[in-house]
């Protein structure tokens, strides 16, 4: 990867990090957190939801279940086509292992997502000039599954407990899964799996 691409990438990163910190500022104040305010923000690289995707998320009370809404963007220089994707995802991390110095590990996470990609070339319902059932899948919606893990650190900033997590997810989506299941001779799991890496900032 050359320097130019790295610079462009840092630009996108900075933009999203800036919006993250703005959201965090909005959380400040003595009053108790309102129910509709997000528990955390995530910023994710790859994973089928954009080159970078990010957005607010919510925790279950025991913090094992996270639900996130991601807004993703894929610039043409990385994807051959500029694509905007919105995604809803749910991640379940049943175990948490405490490490030294406020670090902890969630060794296993599993989850699923449903994404929607915008564009006139993508359909959620096939146009009327196709006979019923001509194609069976919608090109705009893509469901997927993944498994991964995360390492995190709890921080105390401005006398509030916060958390910073680094996570990875290895996943695939419906069209790849069905291709694999029917072609286990030619395709290997590596052909259909992809890696996502992300940061979570908990308020």
């Amino acid at each position: 990867m050359n320097v130019l691409i790295f610079k462009k990438m840092s630009k996108y990163l900075l933009l999203i990090l800036a919006s993250l910190s703005f959201a965090a500022e909005a959380q400040e104040g003595p009053k108790a957190k309102r129910w509709y305010l997000p528990d955390h923000m995530k910023l994710q690289f790859a994973g089928g939801t954009g080159f970078l995707s990010g957005g607010p998320g919510y925790n279950s009370r025991n913090k094992k279940l996270e639900t996130d809404f991601l807004f993703g963007y894929l610039p043409e220089e990385f994807g051959g086509d500029a694509l905007i994707t919105i995604t809803g995802k749910t991640t379940y991390s049943p175990w948490r292992v405490a490490l030294k110095n406020d670090y902890y590990l969630a060794p296993v996470s599993i989850g699923m997502y449903l994404s929607y990609t915008f564009g006139p070339q993508f359909d959620s319902k096939w146009p009327a000039y196709y006979p019923k059932g001509y194609y069976w899948w919608a090109t705009a919606f893509r469901p997927g599954i993944y498994a991964g893990g995360k390492i995190a650190r709890e921080l105390t900033m401005h006398s509030r407990r916060r958390g910073l997590e680094l996570y990875y997810e290895i996943g695939t989506y419906d069209l790849m899964l069905i291709s694999y299941v029917q072609n286990t001779g030619f395709l290997t799991p590596g052909d259909i799996l992809n890696l996502a890496i992300g940061l979570k900032f908990a308020f």
Partner: peptide, 21 residues
């Protein structure tokens, strides 16, 4: 470093509809 090596590797998928050759 993973970010660094990503541009030419199918390890990362940005969108199923990407056209990266």
């Amino acid at each position: 470093s993973l970010l660094f090596f990503s541009s030419c590797d199918s390890l990362f998928l940005y969108n199923p509809n990407q056209v990266t050759l």
